[in-house]
Design a protein around this nucleic acid. Structure first.
Lengths: 127, 127
DNA sequence: CTGTATCCTAGCAGATACTG
DNA sequence: CAGTATCTGCTAGGATACAG
């Protein structure tokens, strides 16, 4: 483990390792239930915090802010705060976010397509 | 909440609700880091438990068995145990599993495509 | 080799209360 | 309304040991 730091790895090697761990990190951020549901809910629309809270069924206040921060940090969603009172904060997907949304749509489509199939498999397994 | 049970909802309504909660359940099963990484690792191949353990970097013994059971239960992967000693158990994606794999590939592609973009967004955000 | 069971801990996630 | 902070229970997930 530690020895790897001294085995004369090239600069390219280091870059690859870093890119890999970064990719893995992003994958972990994104491959999570709430993040994907938020992205799906946003779609092409611009929604307020409270609207999102209603759209994403079952999400808690905390999880929503937490995931929105994460999406914003990774540049998948844009946060626009209007300096009014009461405050009004709107969220929109960025281009990378919209690109990812396409894949989420596919997963949703997949889910509905194989719903019956999966239900049957479960019944068979649970015996 | 409870009142909904008595509001005269039609049979279709009930079916829809059930389908929705099932879809949500499947989505939760599938939209998780380890499950997706296992699916990606399997691809078109047939792999043994120990091979999978090596392919999916960082996964623990426990998480692997747990997720494999889940995949098997949902009919996404097939488990074939050879009655030899020592035991030899092989896993293969089923058709629904392979279909889902296509979407996982897209997420992976997306990750690499926007890696630099995201890295930049993070740097900007972290200040 | 594969799988199950047990223990144990870090961190996830809900509820609540408080600020601007 | 949106966001943060604190407290707390709980469960995900690692380590380990053992069985078939």
């Amino acid at each position: 483990m530690v020895t790897k730091q001294f085995n004369g790895s090239s600069g390219d090697d280091v870059d690859l390792r870093r890119a890999d761990s970064l990719a893995r990190e992003i994958f972990s951020d994104v491959a999570n239930k709430w993040a994907l549901l938020i992205i799906e809910a946003l779609g092409e629309r611009t929604l307020r915090f409270s609207e999102l809270r209603n759209e994403v069924e079952g999400i808690s206040h905390k999880m929503l802010t937490q995931n929105l921060r994460m999406l914003e940090r990774n540049g998948l969603a844009e946060r626009k705060a209007h300096p009014t009172v009461p405050p009004r904060v709107e969220y929109t997907l960025t281009e990378p976010g919209r690109a990812l949304r396409g894949t989420v749509d596919l997963i949703c489509g997949w889910t509905h397509r194989y719903l019956g199939h999966i239900e049957g498999a479960r019944r068979r397994f649970d015996t």
